[in-house]
Write a protein that binds this DNA or RNA. Structure first.
Length: 478
RNA sequence: CGGGAUGUAGCCUAGUGGCUAAGGCGCCUGCUUUGGGAGCAGGAGAUCGCCGGUUCGAGUCCGGCCAUCCCGACCA
């Protein structure tokens, strides 16, 4: 601990790794590409789970658990799906010391095992909709890994729903995208763009993929969550039919949607600074830390008073007290700042004499003195302010880094020598055009915003000069 | 899978082929301290990534292997 964090200006990726390791969110494990999520990191995940799970329940979903191991043949039933995931699969070939008759894949996602079960559970329209979510780990063999952002094994939630009609499934897809947007903005203080993915970026096996996309401080985009309209692809692959209200036999309409521990990486990269982690209060495992400042001669008095305040505050806040005798106040300040605790309460002899405490906010470093009896009310207000300000700062950052280049030359300059960020430009809808942009600049279409077709009317593609079909948002991405 | 870098105590680093592998941080014990990363004294902690070779002698030279990180092609 107490080690230097590489400044962002020197190396953004070193800065990120330093924060994850030093704030004790995660550590490298013995297996390449996999990581240990330490208690401080897992607490963040628990908060994410709690918030999202509540929203899933409110929208009618229930949790279940499906197995880790999937027969290899299941993956092969949906052609695009298997093609998309084949390079990332880990396969179990032996069990109990013997070679298995059929290899088992470790789930990269659970559509196939779930739809094999839905076939058993769905016979009639009365069985629909079926709205199930699971919290689980999944495995995708990654060649290039980064703590939280891309690891071989990661934790996520995957919702899998079955519906009577196409319209109902499409509504569900957008409803859950909206849940993700709300969660990102209100809990994570992370402004996100929503929209549909281009063909080349969509999920293997989906008819349409929607996503929330956020902009990180290094001006690269991060896909923070996806929601897929699966059409009848999996219902047909697994022969899931139901008897309709008109007594006809129909294939079921499906969605799936997920967010992962990548969200932890997003929240780190969006808000933190060169002193360490900065967490939005609603997500912070510890909202407040109380640091008594004492000398030997007044230790009992100061710590006693601090403990009294602590007992009062703990009924309202997620709070810790640091009355360790060996570390100096300055050391503690720096340490708790590195851990990202939003509000610090300092209580020393001078404060006690004046009947006050000193409050310091993590995001700006500002300190203020407030009468002790008003501390709780002021802390509550401060936490709200910090939550709002973090979001607002991130939103302004995104606005300032969203560009509208008029020519392809300007566009290329933006990514090749320029600052990067989002670029909103007319696009002809051709995958070849998209591929050319990627080759020239490494930027890809992050999202086609809702309503973009109308905005594109009458415009010409920035690359090909052909009539534009979409207004596309490009960025380099993680 | 290509390119680059690095493996010496928990972490960071020093170490001309030659004596018992050195220092800082951290850790443990005690004392002293505490309003922005304190001080003193003592202490524990190392098959120098692994295997082989050269040599009277290898942390150091040679070969192979392994691992990790960083940069590129593929991805929540």
């Amino acid at each position: 601990m107490a080690e230097r964090i590489t400044p962002r200006s020197e190396s953004y990726s070193d800065w990120y790794v330093d924060i994850v390791l030093q704030a004790q969110l995660a550590d490298y494990s013995p297996v390449k590409g996999s990581m240990v999520i330490r208690p401080r990191g897992y607490a963040l995940w628990e908060h994410i789970q709690r918030g999202l799970d509540g929203m899933f329940k409110e929208t009618g979903h229930t949790n279940a658990y499906f197995p880790l191991l999937i027969p290899e043949s299941f993956l092969k039933k949906e052609a695009e799906h298997v093609e998309g995931f084949a390079p990332e699969l880990a396969v179990v070939t032996h069990g109990g010391g013997e070679e298995l008759d059929e290899p088992l894949v470790i789930r990269p996602t659970s559509e196939t095992i779930i739809w094999s079960m839905y076939k058993k559970w769905i016979q009639s329209y009365r069985d629909l909709p079926l709205l199930i979510n699971q919290w689980a780990n999944v495995l995708r063999w990654e060649k290039r890994t980064r703590l939280f952002l891309r690891t071989t094994e990661f934790l996520w939630q995957e919702g899998h729903t079955a519906h009577e009609t196409e319209q109902e499934a499409r509504e569900e897809t957008l409803r859950m995208l909206e849940v993700y947007r709300t969660f990102a903005e209100e809990y994570m203080a992370l402004p996100v763009l929503t929209g549909i993915k281009s063909e080349s970026e969509k999920f293997a096996g989906a008819v349409a993929t929607y996503a929330i996309e956020a902009l990180m401080q290094d001006n690269k985009a991060l896909q923070a969550g996806t929601s897929h309209f699966l059409g009848q692809n999996f219902a047909k692959a697994f022969d899931v039919q139901f008897q309709s209200r008109e007594s006809t036999l129909e294939h079921v309409w499906a969605t799936s949607w997920g967010v992962s521990t990548r969200l932890i990486g997003a929240v780190i990269m969006a808000h933190s600074d060169d002193k360490g982690l900065v967490l939005p209060p609603r997500l912070a495992p510890t909202e407040v830390v109380l640091v008594p400042i004492f000398r030997n001669k007044n230790k009992d008095q100061v710590v006693g008073a601090a403990r009294g305040l602590f007992d009062e505050l703990r009924t309202q806040f997620r709070i810790e007290i640091d009355d360790d005798e060996n570390n100096s106040p300055g050391w503690k300040f720096a340490e708790w700042e590195m851990r990202g605790v939003p509000v610090r309460v300092e209580m020393g002899p001078r404060d006690i004499e004046n009947g006050q405490v000193t409050l310091a906010r993590r995001d700006t470093g500002e300190k203020e003195a407030v009468p002790t009896e008003q501390a709780a009310a002021r802390i509550r207000a401060l936490l709200d302010e910090i939550q709002r300000d973090l979001f607002e700062r991130a939103r302004v950052f995104r606005e300032e880094n969203t560009h509208h280049p008029a020519t392809y030359e300007e566009f290329k300059a933006l990514y090749n020598d320029g600052p990067g960020g989002f670029a909103v430009v007319p696009w002809d809808g051709d995958a070849a055009t998209e591929a050319k942009v990627k080759e020239d600049t490494k930027a890809t279409i992050r999202v086609l915003p809702f309503g973009n077709e109308e905005d594109a009317a009458g415009k010409t593609c920035i690359v090909s000069g052909k009539p534009a079909k979409h207004m596309a948002v490009f960025a380099k991405s993680y």
